[in-house]
Amino acid sequence: MDIFNNLMHGFSVAFALDNLMWAVFGVFMGNLIGVLPGMGVLAAISILLPLTYTMTPTAALVMLSGIYYGSQYGGGITSIMLNLPGTASHAVACLDGNPLARNGKAGSALFMLMFSSFCGASVGILAMILFSPLLVDVAFKFGPAEYFSMMMLGLLAGATLAKGSAIKGVAMVVVGLLLGVVGTDVNTGTMRFHFGILELSDGLQIVALAMGLFGVADFLKNINRIGGDSKVTSAKVGMKSMRPEAGDIKQSRGALVRGTAIGAAFGILPGTGPTIASFISYAVEKKVAREPRRFGRGAIEGIAGPEAATSASTQTSFIPTMSLGIPGDPVMALMLGALIIHGIQPGPQMMIEHADMFWGL
């Protein structure tokens, strides 16, 4: 009964005119950003983060979440139609989505993209509603040792599960911890590593770091990637062509269930995210398929499983962020920063002290 009352309260917050307008704006911008190859959600959120200074905390979180959700769907469109992943988590969709489009089945691929995203997101929302309160009850029993262990798990998982060298990942985690030491100690008031620069007495600002590390860097890195070597095919995709072909949904049912479960599980784990979930889902589908050779040539399950995993992971990654104050992936770290900017400390008390924000989200 408490969950039902909280949901009703959340709907009243979400359907407030200002929050609803920011949600529409965020989802619209997220879709636009998602279909732009090279302009990832990290860059978009970091660039728009200063905009939240003038907004209420709830509206700010709703808008940033809308950008996150929208980009996770929009990135799949270019993966299927142009073989150019808008976001890293949709790189897998290129493997089977683009061959389907080249074979004249772009409509079926886009329908499965939408249907899988809807199923995965719906289950992810239910998981967030059901498991967040349970995790909060457990979090109240956490002490310093438990929080330290969870944070170490998140840092090590983020370092070792990321692409590239695990040693380099661990080294960057250490660098990040060193950067976090800069500023004034909250217990003693002693300034650390400020090198005589008074502006560093408050520490390194997350907005400046986000703009430099994600916004400007991603833009400069990807601005020249789309060149003349990209092959673009033209195809007419109407409403009629987006009807699923006979057997598509039946063939994808198992992939939807498995992908949603994988995405929900990986979203809850600190340090992972939708990219890892989508790749693992694709690997699982290829492993359990009767004809693995179909993958890479236009297998509809190669879209259904990873897209469901991506959407489910996007939703459930809010669970450790909101209930424990531990970000599930880099985007959640930026969300955490946005809340801290507004003077809100995510953690077990957030669902009680800021119920409007949590249930409105």
Rank of each mutant, 00 (worst) to 15 (best):
N5F: 13
P306E: 04
A88T: 06
T58N: 00
G305K: 00
V216E: 12
A308W: 01
A309M: 13
A208N: 06
A23S: 10
G76H: 10
G154K: 03
F111E: 11
Y68R: 08
S116L: 15
A309C: 09
D229G: 08
I262E: 09
A304W: 03
I77P: 01
I77T: 10
A299L: 00
G66W: 15
D229T: 13
T56S: 14
L200A: 14
I125Q: 05
P270F: 15
Y68P: 01
T314V: 14
N103D: 12
I326K: 09
D229W: 06
P244Q: 07
A265L: 15
G120H: 07
V207Y: 02
F279I: 12
I319N: 13
R290C: 09
W359M: 07
M242V: 02
A255M: 13
F4W: 07
K105C: 01
G40A: 09
P327E: 02
G75A: 09
M239W: 13
F193H: 02
R253P: 00
M112T: 03
I303Y: 08
P348V: 10
I226R: 04
G271I: 04
F295D: 07
V182S: 00
E301G: 07
T310I: 15
I326V: 15
G74Y: 15
G263V: 15
I129P: 10
S241G: 05
H194A: 15
G254I: 14
G104A: 08
M8N: 12
M152Y: 02
F131A: 12
P292T: 03
I125E: 01
G30W: 10
V41E: 02
L256Q: 03
P244W: 09
L7H: 07
A277E: 02
L17N: 02
G86D: 14
I206R: 01
M350V: 01
S317W: 04
G328I: 06
K250M: 08
G360R: 01
A304V: 08
